[in-house]
Computed example of a mutant assay.
Amino acid sequence: MPFMYRIASYFIYYDFRWCGMTPRELLAWNIRKLRVERGLSQERLALEAQIERVSISQIERKQVNLGIDSLGKIAQALNCAVSDLLMTPPPGDKMPPVLRPGRKNSK
């Protein structure tokens, strides 16, 4: 398995260089995009992922490095694969909009 991991790491690294985004920027982009698409507030996502709300805010503002356990919790709360959080956005894709302030409906 280490060989496959190295190959996967190479392709992920290559993909990051291709899109001009760092891994931290990709995580921030995708977490925010998926959260907004699902209509979740940062508070609701944090609650479902069992992490602090301020952590979601810091991740989306690219201020912290995300641990692998937290990454897994967020992916599970967003009902997606961890790899989806590292997908490169299509060329020309715009940053997801900010949800309007206030409490969101839980789904």
Rank of each mutant, 00 (worst) to 15 (best):
97 P>M: 06
5 Y>L: 05
69 D>A: 13
23 P>F: 01
84 D>I: 05
71 L>F: 11
71 L>S: 06
39 G>R: 07
62 K>S: 14
77 A>D: 11
24 R>E: 11
43 E>F: 04
37 E>K: 11
46 A>V: 07
35 R>T: 02
30 N>L: 02
3 F>T: 04
16 F>R: 10
85 L>R: 09
23 P>G: 04
5 Y>P: 01
62 K>A: 14
23 P>M: 05
82 V>F: 02
80 C>F: 04
22 T>H: 14
52 E>W: 13
107 K>C: 00
78 L>Y: 05
51 I>C: 14
87 M>E: 12
67 G>Y: 07
61 R>Y: 01
92 G>T: 08
47 L>W: 14
31 I>P: 00
12 I>H: 04
71 L>E: 06
38 R>C: 09
3 F>G: 03
73 K>T: 09
13 Y>T: 13
51 I>E: 09
48 E>Q: 15
29 W>E: 04
19 C>E: 07
34 L>Y: 07
107 K>Q: 03
81 A>P: 02
72 G>D: 06
36 V>G: 02
77 A>C: 10
80 C>E: 08
80 C>D: 07
57 S>L: 07
101 P>F: 00
63 Q>C: 00
80 C>Q: 10
68 I>H: 06
70 S>R: 09
95 M>P: 15
60 E>I: 02
88 T>G: 14
84 D>S: 13
104 K>P: 00
74 I>S: 08
32 R>Y: 02
104 K>T: 01
91 P>I: 14
46 A>E: 12
71 L>Q: 07
90 P>W: 06
22 T>K: 14
77 A>V: 10
97 P>W: 03
7 I>V: 06
41 S>D: 10
59 I>H: 00
69 D>G: 10
106 S>I: 05
93 D>M: 14
77 A>E: 10
1 M>L: 02
